[in-house]
Simulated scan of single mutants.
Amino acid sequence: MEASPEELELFRDNVIRFLSDEVEPYYEQWERASIFPKELYLKLGEAGLLCVDQPEEYGGAGAPFAFSMVVVEEVSRMGFLALASNLTVHSDIVAPYILHLGSEEQKKKYLSRMASGECIGAIGMTEPGAGSDLQGIKTSATADGDSYLINGSKTFITNGQHAGVVVLATKTDPKAGGKGTTLFTLDTSLPGFKRGRNLEKIGLHAADTSELFFDNVRVGANEVLGRIGGGFGHLIDELPRERLALAVSAVWHAQGALEKTIEYTTTRKAFGNPIASFQNTRFELAKIKTDIEIHRAYVEKCTQLYADKKMDATTAAIVKLATTEMEGRVTDACLQLFGGYGYMTEYPISRYWADARIQRIYGGTSEIMKEVIARSLVGR
């Protein structure tokens, strides 16, 4: 099922209205608190903005993939990248993992509550000693009768403070390398699970980013997500959507930065004239616009490829690398046009700039993206 442009724009209007009413007035205080209130997820769920392309039988709207990306687009454009990060993990990473890999029992247990905002999703991959090298994780899941005992820790976990379910990467066979990795759905109410501190970051202040600890957490075999030992392959299969969502976010976040910069340079005066009247400013704005539009075109192509189930890992790496590097260039150039005011936190462009920096790191660093692309060209 494909969405008509009219349907998408109507949905976009609803997203913008929600963000203007329920997010914009409170965003600064959430940034200062370094966390979103849980109630926000319930409001998002009630407005139909969570897991929107999930089937109706599991609480979603059954909408085309493009609708989910409209949420990412507008949240990013309006400068709420911390919220875009949290929602991407919840709706575009965790929910699809459970939908694509989960048993009927797992789907019924988690998905409807995720769509309503009652249960917030997180994904537990990164560890203190294993970032991009997922084969190096140490968190273990040891078979014990008809269940598993999970021990270890994770770090840099988005939604960590609020998560009700974690899609958790573990080692069930430490000697088998990537083939010894298994995913679980872990209910955070289980004994032995503990949340660590909410980590302090350069940007994305309102996004709760946490350490998680597992001390003999007992989970049933029915919480295995996908195949025993198939976790690494499952991660590879699901990464294209994650990286595409980050690419969408990058383009629209850059677009929002440009809009703020146009507004500022056309009203701010220097030497008696608007800054936008100077050739340097005009040429910089032209370069920024060109950079954004070229990358938007590629993102739109990739979005269609994903909708048609033709998106591969290499293409996902290309679009993630290109767009997030562009986002960094654009937000930096935009801040420069604000001059000294751009460095002041009272001006939103400073947040655009600081928030953009993480996009070249999470979801696979730019260096890892280059390696993925290179392997598709010349092998290892």
Rank of each mutant, 00 (worst) to 15 (best):
P55R: 02
D92Q: 11
G45E: 01
K43V: 02
S85L: 14
G79M: 08
I35T: 14
L44Y: 09
Y58E: 01
G117K: 05
K107W: 12
P64V: 12
Y110F: 15
E46W: 04
S112A: 15
I35K: 01
R32Q: 09
L101I: 10
G117F: 03
G79H: 11
E57G: 06
S112N: 12
Y110E: 02
V71R: 14
A84L: 07
L81D: 00
A95C: 00
S76Y: 05
P64R: 05
S103I: 05
P37H: 06
E105C: 03
A61L: 11
Y26E: 08
A61G: 07
L44R: 15
P25T: 07
S91E: 05
E57C: 10
L81Q: 14
V70K: 14
G79D: 00
S34V: 13
P96N: 00
S85V: 11
K43A: 07
A63Q: 01
H90A: 05
L40W: 05
M114A: 00
V72A: 08
G45K: 03
S76I: 04
A82D: 10
P37V: 12
M78S: 08
A115R: 00
M69L: 14
S116L: 04
A66W: 02
R77T: 11
S85Y: 13
G62H: 05
E118G: 04
L44I: 15
L49W: 12
K38H: 13
S116R: 13
K38V: 15
E46L: 03
L40H: 13
D53E: 04
G59K: 02
E28W: 06
E73I: 03
S103W: 08
E118L: 08
G62Y: 04
D53V: 04
S85A: 09
G62P: 12
Y27P: 13
A66Y: 04
P25R: 09
Y97K: 01
L42W: 13
K38F: 13
W30H: 06
F67M: 08
Y58G: 01
G62I: 12
L81M: 15
F36Q: 10
Y58Q: 04
S76A: 15
M114F: 03
P55M: 04
L50A: 14
S68L: 00
K38I: 15
V89P: 10
L99K: 09
L42Q: 13
R113Y: 07
S116H: 05
S112P: 10
A33D: 08
L87K: 08
P37I: 14
M69D: 10
L49Y: 07
K43S: 10
W30N: 05
L87D: 02
P25C: 11
P25G: 10
H100I: 00
G48H: 09
P37G: 07
I35Q: 06
L49G: 03
S34Y: 12
Y97F: 15
V94M: 08
P37R: 11
